[in-house]
Every structure is written in structure tokens, then in C-alpha cells.
Design a protein around this nucleic acid. Structure first.
Lengths: 239, 239
DNA sequence: ACTCAAAACTTACCACTAGACAGTTTTTCG
DNA sequence: CGAAAAACTGTCTAGTGGTAAGTTTTGAGT
């Protein structure tokens, strides 16, 4: 009773407080602003405008600009993680789960020049916040753990660790490139690069290659249905 | 001030104009500022202070802050390239030249948390400038071409291209990680990751492994002598 | 040595931004 | 209802990027 008095909000149908809703709106608007204008030209006022409120409101919900960007960063990573979880529900074996990870990271809706640029900006911006370093570390650890969980079906312990690490590095590399490179880096290209790496790191006899191919195509299909239908585009990373 | 008049004296052997000297000084100071304070807190005034001049001077030599950061970016990439060229002079075969590329990118003097953080910040900042996109593209092309030139001794054309691409992606990934990760990523770790990748992508029979190992150690030695002695540390990326 | 124009530099200034703050409206709940 | 908490607004300040006008230094031509 006394403990719950801290969170005094209790609208039975709506669990979230207005504050948390606003914070979500604002971090979404902030991400949009970074995508639209670039980090350097993203001001609190523009974020407020995009959310339909005044600049002051932004600072009322986030103690400073850093905290706002921190929230955006956390939110982006969460969404990326969610995409993987969603995709994983339709993956039935190690091959498919492996490709669920890859496809979740590179599917067209969230993998494009502007978004990757924003991601790089945010990462750089947020690097001094120890809070965000933990988020980032947790995110990397999660991806790596997910990769390990699947790769161990194909490799021994030592190689599983190293390969998972390499693949996660490759993912980061592709995101940076996509953000910096002038000519756009398509999802197909990125996934193809990952495929080449996977086939070099894992057993690549004829049968394995075929199963990887099959799994990749299935997850790409699932992704295009899931991310296309579910209004993921409007809700999250629309550009 | 006698000091300022002394610095402005130009010996006939020095062909460079005062302007280009100042620009070099300023871009060096700007890089230092980004490393010290982070991009967000790097102001023209601080850059001026680090270079011992007023803010106005900075804008006199660079039309705006973007142009300054652009110069810093170009300068960094040039220095990285020079390190490779320097190293390459002591490499006598494809193995050693391959490891010259790797070692040049990851040797301790220039590969550390602060510098990588600065690199990521700059990359993100500069992504909108088409001028810098060309610099970046040229830089990537150069690394990839260098890699191809050596890899083709071990692989067919198709695999050479793809492997070179993968390795250059891996380099970017490692730089980003080094910048964002809380716990520092050592040169040894980075080079070890590259080694694992190289051995998976290239022929990895006993003899090849031995020659790679030998080449890696030689280039590491050369690097520690070259970069240590030549005051590279003071001149360029001192932290 | 003198002139004078260009280059280097300084200073004063403007528009805008992050952030603080005090005051006002709206929600929430006893 | 009514008071307290939360949401919100407008205003103010310190700082920042950028401009422009003015001052000093440099150096090439006479």
C-alpha cells in the first residue's frame, strides 16, 4: 500500500501514466528529428514541434538534452530487440533463428541510410554517459548471446564464441557503413555479406548451404509480412 | 609578443604558406579538442585556445565549423594511410603487407578508446557533407584495394573481393566498438579478432598459419619501432 | 626605404540554443 | 468540492556559431 503510493496513477484500463506516454512520444519525435535534420541541427524546439508541444515540455520530462538522447538510444535498441523476438517466434530451428537475428538487424524498414546515420550520431553522442554504455553493452551482449545460442549447434565452444563475436562486429560495421557511405547500402547487400561470412565461419557443405538459404528466405518473408502489416513502420522508424 | 613573431618567421626552406600552417595547427587542435571534450562540447573557442589563438582566427581559416571538422576528418584518414605506407616499406611479401594493413589500423598509438570515439563522432558529424563522403569513399576504396592486392595471392577473384570487403567491414566494426564500449578494447584483442577472420577466410593449413603468425609479429615489431621513435605520437594523435 | 594591397588577426556584435525558473493551467484523488 | 501534484508555458541568462567592420602584419613592387 505505502509502496504503491509512489506510483499513484491508477487508471484501470490505462496502466501507463501520462508522463510515460509523453516521454515515449518525445523520444520518438527526437529520433525523427535526428533522422530529419541530423544530430547537430536537432534542437529541443524542433523536437517539441514534431511532438506538438513547446520546448519547455521536453525539458520537463527529460532533465536535459542528454537524457532525451539517452532515451532515444535506449528506445532504438529496444525496438531492434523486439523485432528479433517477433521474428524468432516464427523460427523453428537453429538455421532459422540464426537468420532471424541477421534479418532483424538488416530488414529494409529499419536498415537504411538515414536511420543508420542517426544511430551512429546517437552512439557517438551518448558514449560519455555511463548509463548508455551499460545499455550498449547489454545490447551487444544480447546479440552475441543470441548468436552463440544458435552457433553452438554448428561449432565447438571456442569457435562459437569467436564466430559470434565476429558476426556481431560485422553487424556494427555494416550499420556504420550504411550510415556513412554515399551510395546507399541495401538490405540485400548487407544480408548477402553476412551470408558470405556465415558460410565461411560455419560448416559449408552442400546440404548446409541449402538449409541456410532456405532459412534466410523464410525469415525474409516472415519479416516482410510482420514488419509490413503491423504498422511497425508508422509506429517506430518511419522516415 | 616575441613568441608570436618567432612562430611567424618562415624559413625559406619551408614552402608552406602561413595559412596552410595555421590550418594544419587548427585541425590538429580541433582533433585534440574532440578527443578531450567530445564533439558536443568542442567549441570554436576551445579549439582556438588549444591552438593559442582567438576564435575569430579559426573562422578566418575555415569558413565554418563544418569545414573545420571536415579538415580534421580528412587529416585523420590521411595519417592512417601514411602509417600504412610507412609500415609497408618494411613488408616484403603478401603475408607481411596484409598484416601491415591490419597493424596500421590497430596499433596502440592511434587505436584507443578516446581516438575511436572521436572518429565515430566525426564520421557521424560529417556524413552530410558530400565532400567528406567522397573522402570516406576514397579511404574505404583504398583499404579495400590494398587488401585485394594481397588477398589475390591466396584466393580467386570472387573470394578476394568478398573477403576484402568483409575485412574492411570488420575494421570499421572494431573501431566503432572500441569507441562505444565501456571496457577498453586493446590492440591485441582487435588484431586477434582480425587474425581469426583472416584464417577463416584464407587457406589455413599449418604452413600458412605459421607464415601469417610470423608476418603479424614482424609488422607489430616494425610498428612499435616506427611509431615509437618517429614522434608520431606527438605529431598526430597524442592524447 | 617607402607604399600599399592582401593576408592575418581582433573585436564587437547578432541570432539562436540549452537550460533554469517562476508562474499558470489541468489532473488526480481524498 | 478543494488541495496537491503534475503538466505545461513564457521569460530570462549564459554560451555558441557566425558575420562584419576595423586593426595589425606581411611582402612584393617601386
Amino acid at each position: 500500500m505505502t509502496t504503491s503510493s509512489a506510483t499513484r496513477k491508477q487508471t484501470p484500463s490505462q496502466a501507463r501514466s501520462i508522463g510515460s506516454i509523453r516521454r515515449a512520444e518525445l523520444s520518438r519525435a527526437a529520433f525523427e528529428a535526428v533522422v530529419l535534420y541530423g544530430l547537430r541541427k536537432t534542437t529541443l524546439e524542433k523536437v517539441g514541434d514534431l511532438a506538438g508541444v513547446s520546448k519547455g515540455v521536453v525539458l520537463h520530462h527529460f532533465k536535459d538534452k542528454g537524457a532525451l538522447l539517452e532515451a532515444v538510444f535506449r528506445r532504438s535498441n529496444t525496438l531492434l530487440g523486439d523485432a528479433f523476438v517477433e521474428l524468432c517466434k516464427h523460427a523453428d530451428n537453429p538455421y532459422e533463428r540464426l537468420w532471424a537475428i541477421v534479418v532483424a538487424n538488416f530488414f529494409g524498414t529499419i536498415f537504411n541510410r538515414k536511420v543508420c546515420q542517426a544511430w551512429v550520431s546517437l552512439s557517438a553522442e551518448v558514449a560519455h554517459s555511463s548509463q548508455c554504455q551499460r545499455v550498449q553493452a547489454a545490447c551487444n551482449a544480447r546479440i552475441q548471446s543470441n548468436l552463440c545460442h544458435e552457433l553452438k549447434h554448428f561449432l565447438d565452444d571456442e569457435d562459437t564464441q569467436r564466430s559470434a563475436h565476429l558476426l556481431s562486429l560485422l553487424i556494427d560495421g555494416l550499420w556504420v557503413r550504411a550510415g556513412l557511405q554515399a551510395e546507399p547500402l541495401t538490405s540485400a547487400n548487407a544480408i548477402s555479406d553476412m551470408e558470405y561470412a556465415v558460410l565461411k565461419l560455419l560448416p559449408n557443405d552442400k546440404q548446409s548451404v541449402a538449409r541456410h538459404n532456405e532459412a534466410r528466405q523464410k525469415m525474409e518473408n516472415v519479416a516482410s509480412i510482420l514488419l509490413g502489416s503491423k504498422a511497425y513502420t508508422n509506429q517506430t522508424f518511419r522516415v
